[in-house]
Design a protein around this nucleic acid. Structure first.
Length: 195
DNA sequence: TGAATGATGCGCT
DNA sequence: GCGCATCATTCAT
């Protein structure tokens, strides 16, 4: 299977202020070599969660077993279980010791669409990844993938093009505190943004 | 078409 | 126990 060699994003991409990474990550491609086959998608929506200054962040009240990877190196995957049936995928940002991450909320399916449909039966293509819980379900991600390194070969981000994005900012969804922080970033041109 | 609600497990007070 | 970085379904307007 020959194809163009794309640039895998290095750890330095994640080792920056989280809000900067949030803007830059829109339009990037996430690639996951799952047990079922290769999956990829174009990122169109993320939210920032930034440790100390953010009461809505899981890490705001200190390090625990659950949020430990947020305190570690940038460029690591943080996956947690929520509402008894869903998982959410995050990318750890900022230097080691400073807990911060980006929640991947939505993406457009690119490769492995048939596998995603198998994991999320009955969904229309554009809805397969249009929400954080749906993304993890369609990608087959769970806590077993927590802590994976984005600079490895299993899951990583790629730069594939420099297309124009129409980036909008808004308040985060499903959050009760720190509503004044407009830390949800999304591409308003995309039909795959969450509801 | 928008608001309310049930499903369901786990981490924290 | 309670609340949660969700989603699909039900019910009311």
């Amino acid at each position: 299977m020959s194809q163009k060699k794309y640039k895998k994003l290095p750890r330095s991409f994640y080792n920056r202020p989280t809000l900067d990474v949030a803007e830059d990550i829109l339009g990037k491609y996430i690639v996951y070599h799952s047990p079922l086959g290769k999956l990829s998608a174009r990122i169109v929506e993320v939210e920032a969660y930034i440790g100390q200054e953010d009461s809505a962040c899981h890490a705001a009240r200190g390090k625990t077993k659950r949020n430990a990877v947020m305190f570690g190196k940038p460029g690591i995957v943080y996956i947690y279980f929520i509402y008894g049936m869903y998982h959410c995928l995050n990318f750890v940002t900022e230097e080691e010791g400073k807990p911060a991450a980006l929640l991947l909320r939505a993406a457009e399916p690119i490769e492995g669409v048939e596998i995603m449909k198998q994991l999320s039966p009955g969904e229309k293509d554009v809805e397969l990844l249009s929400g954080p819980g749906k993304f993890c379900r369609s990608f087959g991600l769970s806590r077993e993938q927590n802590g994976l390194d984005l600079t490895g070969s299993v899951i990583y981000l790629e730069e594939r093009s420099f297309e124009i994005k129409n980036i909008k900012r808004a308040a985060r969804i499903g959050i009760n505190t720190a509503k004044n922080n407009l830390w949800r970033f999304y591409d308003s041109d995309s039909k795959a943004v969450s509801k």
